[in-house]
Structures are given as C-alpha cells and as structure tokens.
Simulated assay, not measured.
Amino acid sequence: MIDKDKIIRYYKATEEDILAARLIEIAESVEKNKKYKASFFLSPSEFQIAEVICNASEDLSVVAYGGFENAERNKAVFVHRDFKYQIVMDFVALEINWDKRYYSIAHKDLLGAILAICKREFVGDIVLVETGAQVVVEEKMAEFLLQNLTKVGAAEVSIKKIAVEDLQVKEQKTKVITATVANLRLDAVAAAGYSTSRTQMNEGIKLQQVKLNHKPAKGAAQEVKVGDTISYRGRGRVEVVEIKGITKKGRISIVLHRIL
C-alpha cells in the first residue's frame, strides 16, 4: 500500500506535489486492477517521482517507454507483479517534413509550434532527422496534430503517421573532457564541461539555465559527484564520469563526458 500522504508531503516543498498525486493515482489503480497503466510523458526528473512511488509499493514495478532508443521524455508504465502479458503502448509516431532548401527549422521551433496546439505532457521526444523531424505523441492527440500542424514559423510543413518501428535511433556524440578544477562546486565543474568561465556559468545558474540531475540548480555552490548529470540550456549535457584525485598543484582532476 502506497503511503500517499507521506509522498505528497515530501514533494510539496519542491512544488511537485500535484504531479506526485497524479502519478500516485495511476499507481493505485494498478494495485487494484493488477494489470498496468501508463502515465503521460515525463521529463527525467518527473520520472524519478514515478520511481519513488514504485519503490513505496511491494506490488509494482515501473518501466520507461518513449518510442526512441535513449529517449529523454518517457511514459512511466506502472506494472503489477502478477501481470505476465505484453504491454501495449498508446502513443503514435509522426514525421514532419518541410522544404529544407529554403527553411532551417530548429528543435525549439518545432516544439513551440506543437505546444501551441497541445500540452507538453502529450508530447515525447522530438528528433531532427535527415528528412525532417520525428516526434512521439499521445494517440489521442495525433489526429489533432495531423489536421492542425501546417506551419512552423514561416515554413509550410507536411505531417504523417509512421510506424513506431521506423523511428530513427537518436544520434549522440560524446566528447571526453579531462580537466582540473579548484573544487567540486557546480559552477567550477560545469564551466570545465562547457569550456566557459565560472562567471558566465554563475550567470547561467542565476537565470535558471542550468540543471543538476534534471532539476534546476539550487546554486553555484552545489557539490557534484560521480554519476551526476549537468545540463545547460541549448548546449547539451555533461556527465561526471570520474574524479581521479588531487594533482601536485592541489587541484582536483576529473573526467567528464559532454553529450552533444
């Protein structure tokens, strides 16, 4: 039995209590019907809430489904331990195309056009591909998007359904960075990862452009550790892979992976 009140109280401090309550409702329905049920699309930090809820129940497990390999936004599928059958997902894959000779459309442009039509929770990952873009959406919103997404900015676009199996694997480029830092503060490590100054990184943190483990950074002085993920709006993410030790000059040697 999930201690609903305890979990909601815990997330009230971060103003995520409403989301937690919605996810608990889904989990409780699975405890009763002993089958499975999927949430709406969640960011990585939101998915962590689903994992906390799952850990509070002896009968449930939670699986991430986002359509793409290495998807960032996933549905949390709560599954009862007695359910032994196949899980059928209720999302649809769409492909968006435009004349690339005349228009250059970025991820943020596509996201803005889609969110003008439907809520963020109905939309999974958007991936730019050679022919245009692919996106995963809730089944109930697919037809609405097919009928209403006709332009992105000044560019006319065409949109069609494709098989989920035809979604292309998200390409990830990784740059290995070996650096030394004065300390393990977020501003110092992030500055090394993004090849920028600590002053500029501090400004990004103040403007809430920087996240630590998928949540807005609380401050420049937050200490990072191995396994942490830092993201800087529009500049990819940095993973802390190794803290090697102290150099002869008293600095800390670290290894980072920057995902582009």
Score class of each variant (00 low, 15 high):
I87H: 04
V189T: 10
L19Y: 13
Q208I: 03
V157L: 07
S253I: 02
D5W: 02
E95G: 01
I105T: 03
E51Y: 04
R235G: 01
L207S: 13
L60E: 03
N74G: 07
Q147D: 12
Q208R: 10
I26G: 02
N213L: 10
S45P: 00
K35G: 15
K173H: 12
M201D: 09
K6S: 12
L184Q: 09
K37I: 02
V152G: 13
R120T: 05
G219Q: 07
L167Q: 07
C54S: 15
T178R: 11
G219D: 08
C54Q: 13
I252G: 02
G204L: 13
F47L: 13
N202F: 00
K100M: 15
L212M: 07
L110A: 12
M141Y: 07
R101F: 02
T131F: 09
L212F: 06
L145A: 14
K215W: 00
A21M: 09
I126L: 15
A50V: 11
A56F: 05
I18L: 14
A71P: 05
E15K: 03
S104H: 13
T229C: 10
I8P: 10
K173T: 12
D17S: 04
M89C: 14
E121V: 01
G112S: 12
R237Q: 06
K75W: 02
K173W: 03
I254A: 05
G67I: 08
S45T: 00
S61V: 01
Q222S: 14
T199H: 04
A27G: 09
I49N: 06
T178A: 12
I259S: 03
S57G: 04
A27W: 05
A133P: 14
H257D: 04
E58H: 05
A21C: 08
R237I: 04
N148V: 00
K119T: 02
R81N: 14
E203H: 02
D82C: 08
A93I: 05
F144N: 11
S195A: 13
Q200I: 14
V62W: 00
E72H: 01
V164I: 15
L42K: 09
Q168S: 11
V238E: 07
T247D: 09
I96R: 11
